[in-house]
Amino acid sequence: MNKKKYKEIVDNHTPKENRLFNCFVSFFIGGIMGLIGQLLVEGYSYYLDISTKEASTFMIITLIFLGCLFTSLGFFDKWVGFAKCGLIIPITGFAHAMMSTALEYRKEGLVTGLGASMFKLAGSVIIFGVVSAYVFGLLRLLIIGG
């Protein structure tokens, strides 16, 4: 049997992922994350009497802390499995990627394990985040002049 015909058999027996449902769940939970973030910003700026910009930083720190805490407590991976990009794309996903890797490699030593491997997943986010910020910043400068 040639590879093409075999691929047809495989495709026939491969279940379809429910993309529409997954998109909806991610969209919905991502939206809730946005709402929580906004409430935190409003709350911090109201009760601590600080500017929205400062409150945003506080909000990010809070979400990162919660992401790391829930990952360490061992149940955030189950939430991520369900919500998928709804929790991966927001800052909680970044915290989760760093924390889970740190937990995994801590036993291989502080320098050779944790330090060396902590950015295994998050490294790509940082690199391509910086690259895309540069590209889009440049585009913005060229199109609307800064």
């Binding site: 991520v80 989760h96 889970s100 490699y105």
Partner: peptide, 10 residues
Amino acid sequence: QPVEYGGPKP
């Protein structure tokens, strides 16, 4: 992936 990451799988 690291165990606690538990990324979505097909």
